[in-house]
Design a protein around this nucleic acid. Structure first.
Lengths: 179, 179
DNA sequence: GGGGTTTTAGACTCCAAGACGAAAACCGTG
DNA sequence: CACGGTTTTCGTCTTGGAGTCTAAAACCCC
């Protein structure tokens, strides 16, 4: 599982042994509270040394949802499965609305920016982030504002993701169809 | 397996039963001549009705390589696995150099365009295709030209893919890092 | 040599997206 | 309540990737 906490991308890994006649999703459900995941998908299946098949899942947890466990900073992890999940996440953040799976239900652009910065591993402009996501229609305003913190500042507008299911953007038009 | 023949995207499907203690790749090798595939990758693993695990691979065959079998037009297929492979291919053609796995070793831009048109399912400008792929560095010129056909026309320059291993382009910079 | 065909190259345009700076809206303090 | 410090927001400017268009180049056949 991956989540963003305090500006850091964190990972939580675990294993389950499948039972005879059990579906993959059932085994997954025994390992983790699937309802706590905003999104999960299969990454790959590989053959372990002992001859068993291991199927790897990637799960994404919203930053405001509790999910106890031994979370470790993803960048510090030496686990290559974590690295693969990280890479997959980076790609998905670019050409899908995958951000919904990491963000809380409502958020300010600054908060969303922090999540993207942590997940992508590089700085991101809040202005551009908002414009890009709003233009694509994956982000929409919700009424009300978030009161500023102790230091003051202008109250921030609240946003949410228009959809909470993974959707691939068609805005990404390299080699676009001819009109 | 997918290939492009005569401007059509064709699919060839098959099944193997795994043997005890056998690696996934070994089972794949028994099903198909892997050396004939320019690229193959795992798509997903699912649980079949009879309780067995089915792992789906996507294989790409260069258009000039022979690989006998009951090839069918992909668009006409009702197989949802073929549809999934098709969708995956469309994505990969946009943000990777996956074209190398469908094209012959050397080709003209027109020939490459036909392959992309068949695989993507929509028209593509030869001018843009060349400019985009050359700028990304995935395409490079090779000396010599292809003599024109019966109808005449200017001799076409020859190109090849710079790499014959799948590489993701970093040119695709939505939410790019700040400079 | 002329008409038809295919490929190539250049110029033009459009627009998504990054960069920048100023204004807006709030805080705390004296 | 004026002032400086902070955070967010909005508008403008600029850049560069990519689609469109047209003309030139290079070939065939008759």
């Amino acid at each position: 599982m991956l989540r963003v906490r305090d500006g850091r991308l964190e990972a939580l890994t675990g294993r389950v042994r499948m039972r005879r006649g059990e579906a993959l999703e059932d085994a997954l459900a025994r390992a983790v509270d699937v309802s706590a995941l905003a999104h999960h998908e299969q990454l790959e299946t590989r053959l372990e040394r002992d001859g068993t098949l291991a199927t790897v899942y990637l799960g994404l947890v919203p930053s405001d949802r509790e999910l106890p466990g031994a979370w470790v900073e993803a960048r510090a992890s030496r686990d290559e499965l974590v690295a693969a999940a990280e890479a997959r996440l980076r790609g998905k953040l670019s050409y899908t609305n995958a951000g919904f799976a990491l963000a809380p239900a409502e958020f300010t652009i600054s908060e969303l920016r922090e999540i993207y910065v942590a997940a992508l591993g590089h700085d991101v402009s809040a202005t551009n982030l908002q414009r890009v996501l709003v233009r694509r229609g994956v982000l929409e305003r919700v009424p009300g504002v978030r009161a500023p913190g102790r230091a003051g500042g202008r109250p921030a507008a609240l946003f949410r993701f228009a959809s909470s299911r993974l959707e691939v953007t068609d805005q990404f038009a390299v080699l676009a169809p001819r009109r």
